[in-house]
Design a protein around this nucleic acid. Structure first.
Length: 597
RNA sequence: GGUCCGGUAGCUCAGUUGGAUAGAGCAACAGCCUUCUAAGCUGUGGGUCACAGGUUCGACUCCUGUCCGGAUCACCA
């Protein structure tokens, strides 16, 4: 039980004994005491005035006195205005710390604890261009949220839905066919996803030229766009693909294969894995039967041209098309089918889609349609909608070449980590393999932390130069502190100093130690909160706060050099547990921590 | 135009059932390594929490309106 809950209970008893009224939980507000006042936790008196019928000071005074007299864990109190500040006993904190050190994976629940099964879909790349900064946010969020949900006691399945078909895929195929001269990733010395991306850009260039050409011949913009020969050819290619034309199909498989090899490298570099990968080419026909069923049930209606629609105007939305007049399906048709299939096959309790906020409307519609079709689980579909990543100059635009490429960015972060480590002399005498591993960890740590510390739903600005920071509120700062702690623990072992089994209250010498225990004891609540809100930023900000607090402690107090043994024991235990908590927090973010750096 | 999201220090961000004098980092300046890792620690300066009303003992937080920015409302995905 957290200290907040404990105190809330004690305060409830106090209020009942003193005033004969059982207070509501909402009237018993416990919060951490602000640093400038003495005390650990604070009871806010204002909501209780109606019960006590006394002024804030008198009410606080009475409750404080009662608690000190009747609760051995509370040893002191002071009242400032309407705030009752309570101090817990050293024995209480020693016991908390002992319990934490004896608890396996403190703050983490086993994955069957909730009995719930959750699917998280994220990444969902197109196979016509390489991953960029926007995908990085998506991948990091999806992966971290999966881990957070797992440690909240859920069974989690990470899935990727690859958009491997459609007109945009044909564009890069056609451009390669026309202008590629048989170029391959090997012959070009390029990652496959980058090579294919180049042809996607090439298509666009060609397309624009043809549009201009047609316009100069008197066609309107729209006509030119529709009649450009290269576009007509692409549409023809898509028809052939759908008819499984052998030549087109082979080309498609070949080029997608290049892209998958490229993606795999990027995922590996980022440390991202999936339990299952779905391909749209295998799922895009799903949902059609459901749409026809819905038509029979009268949930949908058919227009004169044969297209099928749902009218959502009564729900504050618009009309939405579900099947084209030629009988082909649109994007949402597939999502309807996929969702039904996944809930049937995997007995899911929840499904989370990690997709950018530009698709909020889409998921709103999807949930509503499934609800109208009678699927009760539609309430358990969540769109984890995250904001855009912008550059200082504004939005990234692939056509203007302002996108930040994922591979380039990772490389740049790692090489900066390398430069900085070398400059600081951190790599002196370190084995070159170890050094490379450390720089990898640090560079990626900087990038991942930078992105995950921001509330997912907010847009964020990424400055390629300034964002590569390794001091202050950054991943490397947290990693560094972990390495420091490891160093202390190594030294302790060398000196034959063992970690104590239980912590003695005599060891407390400073409020800083209690401050640290307080923070560590909040870890389970942080994990829970992050899971509830699907927000890794809670964990990131917590890790930073804990780290900062520990560094102050480390700076001000000797650990191994402390001569009083019970004090030394406490500080060593505390260091160990802080290190563990940092590592676990960072693990939840998908960030590795080094033992040396 | 309708709907949704955001606006907090020069910059990047915290601030969660409404609580005390709104916090960090970066950048700037000034200190601290014969002592467990200085990628650290300490200090200084920096704010009309977009604006105006309202609710209340108390509002960055809740409500209404206005302004600004973004997203979205395709027989695209």
């Amino acid at each position: 039980m957290s200290t907040e809950l404990f105190l809330q209970n004690e305060a409830k008893i106090a209020v009942e004994k003193l005033y004969g009224v059982i207070a509501e939980a909402s009237q018993l507000q416990i919060q951490k005491t602000r640093k400038e006042f003495e005390g650990d936790y604070t009871l806010v008196a204002f909501p209780l005035l109606k019960i006590s019928k006394k002024n804030p000071e008198a009410t606080s005074q009475e409750i404080g006195q009662y608690l000190v007299d009747n609760c051995k864990q509370i040893v002191r109190f002071n009242v400032i205005k309407g705030f009752l500040n309570l101090s817990m006993s050293n024995e209480y904190w020693a016991e908390i710390l002992t319990n934490i050190s004896l608890t396996n994976d403190y703050g983490f629940l086993p994955s069957d604890a909730s009995g719930r099964s959750v699917m998280v879909e994220f990444s969902s790349p197109n196979t016509n261009k390489p991953l960029h900064l926007g995908h990085i946010r998506n991948n990091l969020l999806g992966f971290s949220v999966s881990r957070i949900l797992e440690k909240n006691g859920n069974k989690v399945k990470r899935v990727n839905l690859v958009n491997d078909r459609g007109i945009h895929i044909c564009k890069s195929m056609l451009a390669w066919q026309k202008f590629g001269n048989g170029e391959t990733p090997e012959s070009a010395g390029k990652k496959g996803d980058h090579l294919v991306g180049d042809y996607y850009v090439r298509f666009d260039r060609e397309y624009k030229l043809q549009i201009e050409d047609l316009k100069s011949k008197g066609l309107s913009e729209d006509e030119a766009k529709a009649k450009a020969p290269i576009m007509l050819e692409t549409q023809e290619m898509l028809r052939k693909w759908e008819a499984k034309d052998p030549e087109i199909y082979t080309l498609w498989e070949r080029m997608n294969g290049w892209v998958y090899n490229g993606f795999e490298k990027t995922y590996n570099a980022l440390g991202i894995t999936f339990d299952k990968t779905y391909y749209e080419s295998q799922t895009y026909l799903l949902g059609k039967a459901t749409v026809l069923e819905g038509l029979d049930k009268g949930v949908f209606k058919r227009k004169d041209d044969g297209s099928i629609w749902i009218d959502l105007t009564n729900d504050g939305l618009d009309e939405k098309i579900l099947m084209r007049s030629d009988g082909t399906s649109v994007y949402i048709t597939q999502d309807i089918g996929t969702a039904i299939q996944r809930f049937d096959e995997h007995h899911l309790d929840e499904h989370i889609y990690v997709v950018g906020n530009e698709q909020e409307y889409h998921f709103q519609v999807l949930k509503l349609i499934l609800k109208k079709l009678g699927y009760k689980w539609s309430d358990n579909l969540f769109h984890l909608s995250y904001g855009m990543v912008q550059l200082p100059e504004g939005k990234m635009k692939s056509r203007e070449g302002t996108v930040v490429d994922a591979d380039d960015l990772v490389d740049e972060m790692v090489s900066t980590a390398h430069d900085m480590s070398a400059e600081l002399g951190k790599l002196d005498g370190v084995d070159s393999n170890d050094a490379a591993a450390i720089c990898q960890m640090v560079g990626l740590g900087a990038l991942k932390y930078f992105i995950l510390k921001v509330d997912p739903k907010k847009n964020m600005t990424f400055n390629p130069r300034e964002s590569i920071d390794f001091n202050g509120n950054t991943g490397p700062f947290i990693q560094y502190t972990h390495a420091r702690i490891c160093s202390v623990l190594r030294k302790a072992e060398e000196l034959g100093i063992n970690l104590p089994k239980t912590i003695s209250m005599q060891g407390f010498t400073a409020p800083k130690e209690i401050e640290l225990i307080k923070l560590i004891s909040e870890f389970p609540t942080v994990v829970e909160q992050a899971g509830k809100e699907l927000s890794p930023s809670f964990v990131a900000n917590y890790a930073y706060e804990l780290t900062k607090e520990y560094n102050q402690f480390y700076h001000d107090f000797p650990i191994l050099k402390e001569e009083k043994l019970d004090v030394q024991a406490l500080r060593l235990s505390l260091s160990k547990i802080v290190g563990d908590t940092i590592r676990k927090s960072m693990w939840l973010l998908g960030i590795d921590v080094p033992e040396k750096m």
